[in-house]
Amino acid sequence: MVAYVMCMALLGLGIYCVLMKRNLIKIIVGLVITEYAINLFFVLISYRKNGLAPIFAADAPVAPETMVDPLPQALVLTAIVIGLATTALIVALAMRLYEKYGTFDIAEIRELKG
């Protein structure tokens, strides 16, 4: 249970960073931390005590009842790659904004635009 609480703390840190920081790179950092916290929650919830990895081996037969949950692992595998692609999209937008306004500060960007 302590592990879940620490995972929740990581999620809270990410959301705090997205909402409070004024720098675009810091906002991206907050989004990445939030994404990691959610992936971490899926990995934690798939754990079984004294479980084994969900891969059968030819020379060492194991019972399926002693394996960890493979379903959250399969779901989180796609989420990791999607997270990378969306992060790259956000970085491209941020670099375009830097090119146009010469700053990463969202408050300054808002003033320049007005």
Partner: peptide, 23 residues
């Protein structure tokens, strides 16, 4: 799909960086 897509993303971002510096 993943390999070509991610290499395209990396190339686009690296070359965009150079263009910004030149400007």
């Amino acid at each position: 799909k993943v390999g070509a897509g991610l290499f395209a993303i990396a190339v686009a971002l690296v070359l965009l960086k150079l263009a910004v510096e030149k400007e």
